[in-house]
Design a protein around this nucleic acid. Structure first.
Lengths: 185, 185
DNA sequence: ACAGCCATGTAACTCGTTACATGATTAC
DNA sequence: GTAATCATGTAACGAGTTACATGGCTGT
């Protein structure tokens, strides 16, 4: 019991604890709306691979297969729930890992012109705005089901966290941009 | 020309553009002081693997091998420099990827007690303080060489960015902690 | 009829990790 | 002398990606 699976497997398992059954396809969509912002949304192919493994281990169960085994909904089993909570209690959380291509490029900014660095930061601000708006939509869709005790109380807290993170990034990058633009003159 | 290498290869190449030659070992140390905070510090073994590949491609050059080929310093070649700047100009930066185990656990907080979630966030605050202090030491070590035009101008900007990020995390997590602790009573 | 989305899966491959093996040099 | 640090590398493996293949269902 309580095998060691990759974190992504437990993450997907966790997405099945919100009271509904999902197809692999739907699970991927939920990952795109949640996991994507602070973990990684696994590729479609990996979702199916993980579901096969979790199914093998009895942590999820496929049901309701239509014709051709299509559209079968997966649900977490009692064993899966135990395995997930055991993991939560067993594994210390570990520090976040950030892969930040913009910061990496800024680090070696001496190799390009200040104008190029400024453009890099401007692009990043644009991307931030897009992401932020996407997350804002997700967050808004949880309104009314986000009180303490409600189904999406925790997801809404995480979404708020993400929104504040984006906001913080925006502020810092704007400040950096001013520093870079001073060197342009 | 301008092969497509993994980002980590270009990152290591970038660490060789600060005017000094490094052994694989020293390169790893520099990665631990810089890359670690906003990319990933590759394992020792990978540093050597990447150096071997970069060397093969003529992007870096090993020199000064002592007895037994030990302590040979690597330097970036003119070709390496061209390849790196070409990459900077060719590849758009892409959005950061965050793997945040704490946020992930908070998402499925309904599976554990509020006290456990609070403990999770407390632990994270402790870890944040440690990291922040480490980065602060790095940042302080750049003082005096961080003016516009100086060797470590860009690294110091990135370090400042990192410090503000840590500070932002602290603020948000403290706020979340209060929300969680309200449910404990 | 055709586009677009729903839906599932396999194969090949790369990145990067851990474990292992080896030995030199420096500090106490 | 012995522990810590410096220094380099190989082998096995796992996680996760892209490319590929397949086909159903829905709306226009």
């Amino acid at each position: 019991m309580s095998q060691d699976l990759p974190t992504t497997a437990y993450a997907l398992l966790g997405l099945l604890t919100f009271g509904d059954d999902l197809t692999g396809y739907e699970l991927k969509q939920r990952a795109d709306r949640t996991l994507r912002f602070y973990w990684v949304s696994p590729a479609m192919s990996q979702v199916y691979t993980e579901l096969a493994r979790l199914s093998e281990l009895g942590l999820v169960k496929a049901r309701d297969a239509g014709p051709n085994k299509r559209s079968s909904k997966y649900s977490i089993t009692a064993k899966g729930r135990r395995s997930l909570t055991a993991w939560l209690e067993r594994e210390p959380a570990g520090f976040p890992v950030l892969k930040h291509p913009v910061a990496l490029r800024l680090l070696i900014g001496h190799l390009v012109t200040p104008a190029r660095t400024a453009a890099l930061l401007h692009d990043y601000l644009d991307q931030l705005e897009v992401r932020s708006a996407e997350l804002q939509r997700v967050r808004d869709s949880l309104r009314g089901r986000d009180d303490p005790g409600a189904a999406f109380h925790h997801p809404s807290m995480v979404a708020d966290w993400g929104l504040e993170y984006f906001e913080g990034e925006r502020t810092v990058v704007e400040k950096l941009l001013r520093r870079v633009e001073e060197s342009t003159q």
